[in-house]
């Protein structure tokens, strides 16, 4: 069976992803590597630095609409959130709250806060969260795109969950504690981080999609991410007491429905899906059978 060639989001660099998502040649980078805003912390550990501190931020157009975009570079220190890295994202989001582009696209590819930057990174990730909420209050939707090789964990896992909507491929992983962390704390019997199928069916894009955390599931193809982003752009609906109550009710229902399951396969079976088939389905196939 011949395969149709894909332009892999998973394998692309942050800059390749940005270039592939936006209208051709529309991207203008803010604080590009030529500005050399490097981490003030990594030098103390004799660790290599990057002139963009592992994140690309800027503005461009998507089908002619003005959008802001940030993209974490998983190939630099696991896409980790450092002080400068976080400040660049925060600044972009604050600018969005003032200038009101049609949307902010956040390309997450990060294991979480950069260990060498500890508290500065932790504070940075809370600043990003606040800035996301500020942009949303100004009506600007923040859309997260997940599908990089580092997944989206720790501080990035939390901040991405503040987005208006998430787009993910099956290769994406989204969680707070990473698989190795869970194994270390809870033991290998509780979670075997080397059992890759287990890791993906627990934290992967498909499971997050079936749980409603991810709005659109796409194949690992940059044009598919682009189409999904175009379809999701609409003014942000600000949080209200009612919307928070509704979300709480939804979460309580979820625990009621699936709280006794010990494996994603049991959840899928309870959703009425053929649990053995789910991993092999394409994004379109799974979307077609996903329960409402």
């Amino acid at each position: 069976m011949k395969l149709t060639p894909r332009i892999s989001f998973y394998e692309a660099s942050a800059r390749q992803r940005v270039a592939g998502l936006l209208d051709a040649d529309s991207f203008r980078e803010i604080l590009p590597p030529t500005e050399q805003r490097i981490s003030p912390h990594l030098g103390m550990f004799d660790a290599p630095v990057a002139f963009d501190d592992g994140v690309v931020v800027g503005e461009g157009t998507l089908e002619g609409k003005e959008v802001y975009i940030f993209a974490q570079e998983g190939k630099f220190r696991g896409g980790s959130l450092g002080e400068v890295h976080a400040a660049k994202i925060t600044g972009l989001l604050r600018r969005a709250a003032i200038r009101k582009p049609a949307a902010v696209l956040g390309l997450f590819d990060s294991g979480g806060v950069r260990l060498e930057e500890a508290n500065a990174g932790e504070i940075g990730s809370t600043e990003i969260m606040r800035a996301i909420l500020e942009a949303q209050r100004a009506g600007v939707p923040v859309i997260g795109l997940l599908g990089g090789s580092c997944g989206c964990f720790g501080g990035s896992g939390i901040t991405s969950s503040c987005c208006d909507a998430l787009i993910a491929s099956e290769e994406a992983r989204l969680s707070v504690s990473g698989p190795e962390v869970i194994e270390t704390v809870m033991g290998v019997e509780a979670f075997d981080s080397r059992d890759r199928a287990l890791v993906w069916r627990t934290t992967g894009g498909k499971n997050r999609f079936l749980f409603g955390k991810v709005a659109t599931l796409v194949d690992d193809h940059i044009p598919a991410f682009r189409m999904a982003a175009v379809a999701l752009i609409k003014p942000s609906e600000p949080l209200s007491v009612e919307s928070l109550r509704a979300e709480r009710t939804r979460l309580a229902r979820r625990i009621e429905d699936y709280g006794s399951c010990t494996d994603a396969r049991q959840v899928w079976a309870r959703m009425g899906l053929d649990a053995d088939r789910v991993p092999d389905m394409t994004a379109a196939e799974l979307t077609a059978v996903k329960p409402a």
Partner: peptide
């Protein structure tokens, strides 16, 4: 590009062990 592509090439007949899957 990955093990999953090999499964697709095989028309779903190749069934890789769990540790090689990322789906």
């Amino acid at each position: 590009r990955n093990i999953h592509d090999l499964v697709r090439w095989s028309g779903g007949l190749y069934n890789p062990p769990s540790r090689f899957r990322n789906w």
